[in-house]
Structure formats: C-alpha cells, structure tokens
Simulated assay, not measured.
Amino acid sequence: MNRNTGKTDIRSLNLAELQQVFVAMGEKNFRATQVYEWLWKKSCFSFQDMSNISKELRNKLEANFTINHVKINNSQFSADKTIKNSFILHDTHLIEGVLIPSDDRMTACVSSQVGCSLTCKFCATGYMERKRNLNPDEIYDQVVLIDKQARENYNIPLTNIVYMGMGEPLLNYANVLKSIERITAEDGLNMAAKRITVSTAGIAKMIKKLGDEQVKFNLALSLHAANDKKRNEIMPINEQNSLKALAEALKYYYTKTKNPVTYEYIVFNNFNDELEDAAELARFCKHLPCKVNIIEYNPISFADFLNAGEDKIDAFAAYLRKQGIITNVRRSRGKDIDAACGQLAIKEKAAANIS
C-alpha cells in the first residue's frame, strides 16, 4: 500500500491474486495476464503505456492501483567506466546500485535493504542504520534501470547480477528470493540463475534454508578471516554464526544444491595478510568445493583499515593456489566515486522534485 495515495501497489500481487482482482472487476482472466506481462516482462512503470489494454481498463487500474517504481536520483561516472547510482524509492528513502563493466561481462551490483544492521567494521553501509527491507519489485527495478544504463552507455546488456550492495540479503530472505524468481522467470526478465550471485556475511540457518530450497543461483560468503577471534573483531555477526556453524551450514547447502561456494576475502594490512592466515583459509576451504576471490580493500572514513601491499596479496594468492584452491584477485572498480566494494553509503539528499 502506498501511504500517500492509499492505493495498492499492483506488483505486490502474484498472477493468481491479480486474476481474482480482475474477475471481481468484471474483467477476463487473460487481461490480468496481459497486465502481469507488462509489469514483469516489459518492465512497464505506467498503466497508460500498456498499449494492448483498453483506455477504460487503464483508467480503472490507475484509479485503484499504483506502481511504486524506483527512480534514478543521481548517477556518477568513474574513470574506469563504472557507474554508481543513487535510487529513490516511493517513500523517499535512498539506496545505491552500481554498473560494473569489464572485458567479458556487464554486472549490476544491487542493494537488498535500506542501510544495514550488521555493523561490519570495514564497510561503509555497516555504519548506517537499517531503515527497512526492500520489496522484490524494488530489487527488480534496480536491475531494469542498470540494464538500461548498460545498453545506453555501452551498447551491451547486463550479463550478471550480484547482490552485494547495501544490506544483508539473507536478512531479507523472502523478498530477495522473490526478486530472483521475477528476474529469472520466463514471464519476467528471463535471466539465467547461474548469472546471479547472492553474497552473505554468514547467517547459518538461512544458508541451510537456501539448501532446502535447492536454489540455482550462486552463493558467496564474505569471510575475510578464517579464525573466530579475528572474524569476531571485524564482523560481529560471527559471534552468533561461528566458523564452525557456517562450515556445517555450507556443507549442508552443498549436499542439497551441488553448487560450489565463493569465499570473498579482503586482505587487510597487518591484520589477516600473513601466510598463517592463508593457511587457515585453505583449511576452511577444504570443507566443500569452492573458490576464493581476494578483494582489494577500499578505505572508508569511518575505519582505519588499510589494504595489504601487492607483494603480500600476491604471496597470499600463490599460497592458496599451491593448495589447489581456485583463487582470483579482484581489483577495485569505481573507487574514485566511492562505488567500490564496501564503500556504498548515501552521501546526498534526494532530489526535491523527481517525477
């Protein structure tokens, strides 16, 4: 429900519910299917643009429903072609999402919450208050808008989606999975689930739930330390979700899905950058098939962490590879516009009059 208009957001209804509403309005079932296709397959944000619907029905929909779509508030362009967007929601909250172009892919990094409640010490979003969860359509809209941006600026459609923006996806579990269902459905955006990665700070019971649902998308765990003492220090979530609990949950997830897991690991200077730390990570990797993405740290004003030197990062990666672990070193993108990993935090106010 939109509190300003008193109208129901039509995208909060599934197809069966929409059909019931249409029948109650004296309309045929197939009209509901047509509208549903406009909403989710054609990503239409206006009833008046639904050209195969009669003007009378369009006006009826306008009178009774709203489409609470996301709008771009501001876009910043990085020297490396990364584009950071602040998006404004129907209730004036702001979130951020990023388009990350590279040689072989065009990736959308999307948010799942307004703010975050996890207080990870190295992440700018962790210093924000969590205002609310995003609805499935608000996540879907980020993908639609970033895809449009990719086509307009680089003439290439999106190839990948990562749920690595603001918020913890597994604390918005139902809405995140619903958004992925709409993004991957034939009557939605029809993107392959294997091109979607959901990243979590590590909530063991929800990882097991993903296993029970035998999800097809990829799972990444923000690990950053493979012993509890260090991980507790930088990620308070670890106090309730220890490495042992996470290992058990991930093994369960793998037995149910057969999907390898990606571990994300930021190598912080003088914190987790020694070969002893690499050895701990290698032991953790033995639990199930996986790969490691070593991520460059992007400094934020709230914290004193520094990125490890290149020699340390190279030695760390070489050690893991000698242990037979697939290891990639990911260089930061969009750092000059605070669009890189861990830097997303709203620094502006919403534009006054966004139509």
Results as ranks from 00 to 15, higher is better:
residue 222 S to I: 11
residue 223 L to I: 10
residue 223 L to A: 12
residue 224 H to G: 07
residue 224 H to I: 10
residue 226 A to W: 05
residue 229 K to Q: 14
residue 229 K to M: 09
residue 230 K to T: 14
residue 232 N to Q: 09
residue 233 E to R: 12
residue 233 E to G: 13
residue 233 E to K: 14
residue 235 M to G: 05
residue 235 M to W: 03
residue 235 M to I: 11
residue 236 P to G: 08
residue 236 P to W: 01
residue 237 I to Q: 04
residue 239 E to H: 06
residue 240 Q to V: 02
residue 240 Q to W: 03
residue 241 N to M: 03
residue 241 N to H: 13
residue 242 S to C: 05
residue 243 L to F: 09
residue 243 L to P: 07
residue 243 L to I: 06
residue 243 L to H: 07
residue 245 A to F: 01
residue 246 L to K: 02
residue 247 A to S: 15
residue 250 L to T: 03
residue 251 K to F: 01
residue 253 Y to A: 03
residue 254 Y to K: 02
residue 254 Y to M: 03
residue 255 T to L: 11
residue 255 T to P: 01
residue 256 K to V: 01
residue 256 K to L: 04
residue 256 K to R: 15
residue 259 N to S: 14
residue 259 N to V: 02
residue 259 N to P: 07
residue 260 P to V: 04
residue 260 P to D: 04
residue 261 V to W: 02
residue 262 T to A: 13
residue 263 Y to E: 10
residue 263 Y to G: 09
residue 263 Y to A: 11
residue 264 E to I: 07
residue 264 E to N: 07
residue 266 I to F: 01
residue 267 V to N: 01
residue 267 V to M: 03
residue 270 N to T: 04
residue 271 F to S: 00
residue 271 F to C: 01
residue 272 N to S: 09
residue 272 N to A: 09
residue 272 N to H: 10
residue 273 D to L: 00
residue 274 E to D: 12
residue 276 E to K: 15
residue 276 E to N: 13
residue 276 E to W: 07
residue 276 E to M: 08
residue 276 E to A: 15
residue 277 D to S: 08
residue 277 D to Y: 05
residue 281 L to A: 10
residue 282 A to Y: 07
residue 284 F to H: 07
residue 285 C to P: 06
residue 287 H to M: 11
residue 287 H to W: 09
residue 288 L to Y: 12
residue 289 P to G: 11
residue 289 P to S: 12
residue 289 P to D: 12
residue 290 C to Q: 10
residue 291 K to P: 12
residue 292 V to N: 06
residue 292 V to S: 08
residue 295 I to S: 01
residue 296 E to L: 06
residue 297 Y to V: 04
residue 297 Y to A: 03
residue 297 Y to F: 15
residue 298 N to H: 11
residue 299 P to T: 13
residue 299 P to F: 02
residue 300 I to K: 10
residue 303 A to M: 10
residue 303 A to G: 10
residue 306 L to G: 03
residue 306 L to N: 14
residue 308 A to C: 13
residue 308 A to L: 11
residue 310 E to T: 06
residue 310 E to P: 02
residue 311 D to S: 11
residue 311 D to P: 00
residue 311 D to M: 02
residue 311 D to V: 00
residue 311 D to L: 01
residue 312 K to R: 15
residue 312 K to C: 03
residue 313 I to Y: 00
residue 313 I to S: 00
